[in-house]
Write a protein that binds this DNA or RNA. Structure first.
Lengths: 338, 338
DNA sequence: TTGTACGCGTTATCAA
DNA sequence: TTGATAACGCGTACAA
């Protein structure tokens, strides 16, 4: 692991000169010495010591990516293709910009904050934060923050959010169900906060606009903990005959539910129609293929990282970015209008 | 961002004393001053500057996790639940041990090496390296390395490998097919190196032990690039009538293939039996549920990280760890023996 | 028990 | 065009 100092010594010049060549400050150096240094550098393949560089410049070239997992959903989080695609998009963008990604998964906001300030990462991408979590982090941590899928009006004063028009997404797909003659439509989710709330709101709005009354009993709550999910699915399947269609808050749940239904001899879409949200491989590979709301998760990751990089360069960015969704009609909705 | 120097100044003592308290070197400090410092530390919640610490100690507390993706499989890699579960296992273990994970995905070994030596990470976990890739990295990089799923006898002199008894896995599942009366059994994969080769070998061995001759034409090659996969699947589906069963090298391919078959009116398992390898959510959620070889990917990640951590502590570890597999019989194999 | 002073590898300032 | 030298924040050997 050769250092600048050592190179300077062997070449009989000062560290300044070597450093200047390394950083392409050509104007400061004569062609002659420049070539000499460059040749030497190639020979020994010098790698800068990032710690020293960061210490001197008071920056880290690290972007932190913290995923907060609800304790009861950790397993689900990490298995969901959504997450890996998101990581992929973020990582690729960060890497190509010459930054590095430090990944951190935790269900404890305090732990995430400690991690972040230990490494003084240059910027932060947050996923899975609920409302004020993001604010708490941003109050403590004074550098750029981009959140993904966080719903918080108050938060937008503190950080940029990259999200989706979730409400519009479910609004459209519920309208699609209604257009196919459905009126007894349930909504399945494991909570009613953040993204899930927005999707629920879109669902309610579509019902309302069609003159269908929303009842509490339309909400099917699934419990994701691995020791509860079977029981939970059983209850939901038993109640499925109350409805002609179920809107699932994610493709993961939609496919999970379809498997459970099929195991009980309930056929999709003949006995009941199912739709999801995300359009990931789970729904694409399922047969019948899942009718769902498409979102481009990779683009979401790229957008979040890009936005952060812009902020690091001092560019101004909007504090709210909503990516579009669109309906993908496949085979899990039956037309019962005639 | 308060520094030790500043704290010392405000407390009217030396940086050494403050530093000693921080590091719990109690014997060096009087109870009195210790308490004074500790109280002050809590008040200002001091966070050490990692760059300075690393520079001084020549360590980083970072463990690098580099995933190498074949250029034509990048998309597949990042979508495969296998990868996210692996990341989850590694991350959790690293975090709980007080280390940090720097994640790096690339299809270029040279780029990975540059990354690794720039950050002088304390240890390295490598996934997706083919044979001598790992050796090349280890020659350059003198700290502990743990590879995941790398097949290389030569490599084991240089690093620890955490893998699977892949050969045994396919051996068992092919025997299961044979026991169910199958003799015309194809093997589907996109390459014949590393893990895929081992699984292919187990498949061949099972055929051989049953007195079935292996022919080149039994190998179904799938091309994973998104612009080729459809064409590729079409060819495979057309050839499917030559066989009564297809052994897929992964659950991902098994489920992909089943969707393609079903789209062409070919029914699993009635017209053809399909088995996979991995036992991930894709196969579990599919109906009919996939008969496959189980491996515990999270444990794989945990084991890899644990092994590396042990090496960092100077403990001796075996240079080859093979995790067990077992057969999971579900619904995609038809008994045609009678 | 406490403090001084130096080294870690780099960048940046300023003088030669 | 080049070279000393300080500074970044921390850890530590050694002196007081």
């Amino acid at each position: 692991m050769i250092t600048i100092k050592e190179i300077a010594k062997q070449l009989n010049m000062s560290t300044t000169t070597v450093s200047n060549v390394i950083h392409g400050k050509v104007s400061e150096v004569s062609d002659d010495t420049r070539e000499k240094v460059e040749e030497f550098l190639r020979k020994v393949d010098y790698v800068p010591n990032i710690n020293a560089r960061n210490l001197a410049q008071n920056e880290s070239k690290i972007i932190g990516f913290a995923l907060k997992a609800r304790a009861d959903k950790y397993e689900n989080l990490i298995m969901d293709p959504f997450v890996s695609v998101l990581i992929g998009g973020v990582e690729e963008t960060i890497r190509k910009a010459g930054y590095f990604m430090m990944l951190y998964i935790s269900s404890d906001t305090a732990e995430i904050m400690r991690h972040v300030s230990t490494w003084n990462v240059d910027g932060l991408i947050l996923f899975g934060m609920l409302d004020d979590d993001g604010i708490r982090v941003s109050e403590k941590y004074k550098k750029p923050i981009v959140c993904i899928d966080t719903y918080s009006l108050e938060g937008l004063k503190h950080f940029t959010n990259v999200g989706l028009d979730d409400e519009q997404g479910t609004y459209e797909i519920v309208n699609h169900l209604i257009a196919n003659g459905h009126r007894k439509i349930a909504f399945l989710s494991d909570n009613t906060k953040g993204v899930d709330l927005a999707r629920l709101t879109g669902y309610k709005k579509a019902l309302e606009d069609a003159g269908i009354k929303y009842k509490e009993s339309n909400f099917l709550k699934i419990r994701p903990r691995s020791d509860e999910i079977e029981e939970s699915l059983k209850e939901i399947c038993e109640r499925s005959k109350e409805f002609t269609a179920i809107v699932c808050v994610s493709d993961l749940y939609a496919v999970t539910l379809m498997a459970a239904l099929q195991d009980r001899g309930i056929s999709v879409p003949d006995d009941i129609s199912i739709v999801g949200f995300d359009d990931n491989m789970l729904g694409q590979l399922h047969r019948p293929a899942l009718t769902t709301v498409h979102q481009d998760v990779k683009v979401k990751g790229i957008t979040a990282a890009d936005t952060l990089l812009k902020q690091l360069k001092g560019e101004k960015t909007p504090n709210q970015i909503k990516l579009p969704t669109h309906l993908v009609v496949r085979d899990t909705v039956k037309d019962i209008s005639r």
